[in-house]
Computed example of a mutant assay.
Amino acid sequence: MDIKGKKIAILATNGFEQSELEVPRDRLKQAGATVDIVSLAPGEIKGWDQKDWGRPVKVDKTLDQAAASEYDAIVLPGGQINPDLLRLEPKALKFIKDIFDAKKIVAAVCHAPWLLIETGIAKGRKMTSYRSIKTDVANAGADWQDAEVVVDQGVITSRNPGDLEAFSAKIIEEVKEGRHLQRSAA
């Protein structure tokens, strides 16, 4: 699928799960999108690769330099550390919510649905996540489902790194569809 001309933000900080940033980034670029790694500070962020620190990834823009209006979608990698740090950052939460409120695509994998909980996006949605946060998702008012990928009006969630190909394909499909103008508020 071709999504040339589309621009996608991947919001992450130190401790992102390596594959959960790199696989979607690479698939989206292969499909023709421009992908920016957006983070809290300039320079590089370091991933977590299963059981130890992984490779650094260059930050393209800080949250202060990025505007939700520039992007067609946002991808939120998981890992335990990354979303836990980001959910404490008001600018990160505002960036996610601004993209959502513009009825653009929001995609979260593994533990990143914590960010959808924190922004209020989870409430009333069908979602999945890594199983250890299933209760968190359900307690936030979402309908947690045991599926590799769940889509609810342009909000895409996925369980774990084993589902990244399906997750990436669904992001491409949804970005190609465009805005979800009928999306109901969370």
Rank of each mutant, 00 (worst) to 15 (best):
K103F: 02
R131A: 14
V137R: 00
V137E: 00
G154E: 01
K103G: 04
P113S: 09
G124I: 05
A108N: 07
D152W: 03
E165M: 13
W114E: 06
R131G: 14
Q153D: 14
R159M: 11
P113A: 14
A108V: 13
L93W: 11
Q153R: 10
A102C: 15
F100C: 11
R125T: 04
I121P: 02
D146R: 05
S158K: 10
I133K: 02
G120K: 04
D136N: 15
A108Y: 05
W144M: 03
N139V: 14
I156P: 00
I156R: 01
A107D: 03
S129V: 04
K126P: 07
A112C: 10
L116Y: 03
D163H: 15
D163I: 07
V151D: 00
E165S: 14
V109I: 15
R131I: 08
L164C: 14
L116V: 09
Q153M: 07
E165F: 15
S132Q: 12
S158G: 12
N160C: 12
D163A: 15
L115C: 04
K103W: 04
M127K: 02
E165G: 12
F100G: 03
D146M: 05
R131V: 15
G141D: 11
H111E: 08
I105Q: 00
R131H: 13
A140N: 03
G124T: 04
I105V: 13
D143L: 08
I96Q: 02
D143Q: 11
K134H: 15
T157F: 07
K104L: 07
T157V: 15
D163L: 09
Y130P: 01
A140I: 05
E118F: 13
L93Q: 13
A142N: 03
I121W: 02
G124D: 06
Y130C: 03
F95C: 09
A108L: 07
